[in-house]
Design a protein around this nucleic acid. Sequence first.
DNA 1: GCCTCAACTTACCATTTGGTAAGTATCGGG
DNA 2: CCCGATACTTACCAAATGGTAAGTTGAGGC
Lengths: 199, 199
Amino acid sequence: MPAVAQTRTRLLQVASIRLAERGYHGTSLAAVAEDVGVSKQALLHYFGSKALLYCAVLDQLGQDLLQMLFSAMQDGQPAEQQLDSFFAALTARAVQDPWLPSLLLRVLIEERAAGSGDAAEPLPLQDFLEPLIAVIQATERFKASSFAQALATALQLLGGACLFPAAQAGLAHRFGPEVVDQLCDISPVQIQALLAARL
Amino acid sequence: MPAVAQTRTRLLQVASIRLAERGYHGTSLAAVAEDVGVSKQALLHYFGSKALLYCAVLDQLGQDLLQMLFSAMQDGQPAEQQLDSFFAALTARAVQDPWLPSLLLRVLIEERAAGSGDAAEPLPLQDFLEPLIAVIQATERFKASSFAQALATALQLLGGACLFPAAQAGLAHRFGPEVVDQLCDISPVQIQALLAARL
DNA sequence: GCCTCAACTTACCATTTGGTAAGTATCGGG
DNA sequence: CCCGATACTTACCAAATGGTAAGTTGAGGC
């Protein structure tokens, strides 16, 4: 099935997962390459260096999130419902792709990971965060609020929504898989409750 | 001032900060030791290995959090107010010690980091998480709810409360230091609003 | 004075890591 | 049929890392 040049895509996927699970420094190029079934140098062939691979992964993550946000912004619905749709989509995906919220939280926590030294490098996820804040500022509740307040709310929502799926694997280890199964069912309604309460 | 054996304490502090900022794999023993001003082997002298150092750091973190929780549980106040006090103390400390929420989130995300292979190793932070969930289950709102629902709420609250302080440094880089200053002021009331809305 | 023990230090080592150099195989175009 | 580009591979390397071995220093007990 994977005709050609699928290798790059698979490398990106595997790299995303490993970077989410073990972080930048905990992920070795050799491990990623081995998972995909190619040599380490194949990886370097596609993405010049580890830092650039990391940038590519974050780029992909930003695009994924942005697309989810845009999909939720389609029609002329009120901003509250747009946020509802977005976080519903986010949690739905997060349950089956736990690496996504893990990576998101990680990036937000680890400010600078792979800076090329250049000051003008585009911040990863910035293209996603700014529209998200804009939507929050478009709600009735935050119409008159400051940018900082909208940002605080965005972080609160993201943190509240992403921590469970990101911690999913560890929680199964702590409290048992059956509790996690229950949590997967509870999570979406819990997020809706959070949004309803905060907006 | 540091008479003797303060070295161990300082090593633990510096290790906590570096582990929070850069994660387990991103933190080298040599770097921690150098920050304190001793040799790498002094570190190994006190904590047998890197994995044991990590365990010691997590132990300390768990104790810190547990103490904050117990302090908030003093008198016969209602559970709602106990949670209020705890999260107020947490955010107050988190603003000046951003490494604490960073480390907390990191540990929750990275399930297994330094397992001795033994299956019966005590889970880090478990002694803190369980009482916290118990307090949530003691509230009117969650009195009749399942354990899983209380756990979901605990994670939502922790995520919502910890993401901003943990991301503080990166946010200053993204949106400028003045926005972060505003956020530091906003954060506590935002957390109170979150608690009031969810309990 | 001497023994012991904690609290370190300098040397050293095996492994892993990111990265370079150079070679090979395949394929489409001219 | 050759040319170049793409998509890799094997070999190799310098640096960093966690960890071991052995030595040094100073204080307290006998």
